[in-house]
Amino acid sequence: MIAQIAMATGFALILIGLYGALTNHNLLRMIVAFTIADTGVNIVIVAVGYMAGRTAPILDAAVPAAEAAQRIIDPVPQALVLTAIVIGLGITALMLAYAYKLYQKKRTLDIGKLTELKW
């Protein structure tokens, strides 16, 4: 049941993020909205891997290697999320740098004003 709730919130976050990104004209607000959407995606991914009544995939005293298969949840989504978060950060940093450079060149942060390239 927890997984469903988490996944629902994840989807909600994605939708809110997308809505925010596609309506705000300020570049920074768009980037914030995208980070929210990324967080939402991460939550969904982890929620998919969750199985009720099981513990984290760390083999230590509490979870000996032998009975790991019955006790731990699916480790693969976690590996994917970890990479996704880092990549999300990479892209956000790049977008921020772009936003900064655009502001430096064009003195505006409004996406509507960056339309020389069209048709």
């Binding site: 570049l27 995208f34 959407a37 990324d38 892209i91 977008m95 772009y98 060149k105 960056l114 020389e116």
Partner: peptide
Amino acid sequence: ALAAGFKYLIVSQVISI
């Protein structure tokens, strides 16, 4: 080119989601 780059990054964000 900068504006084009930024547009590309926006679209690639949506694609990655």
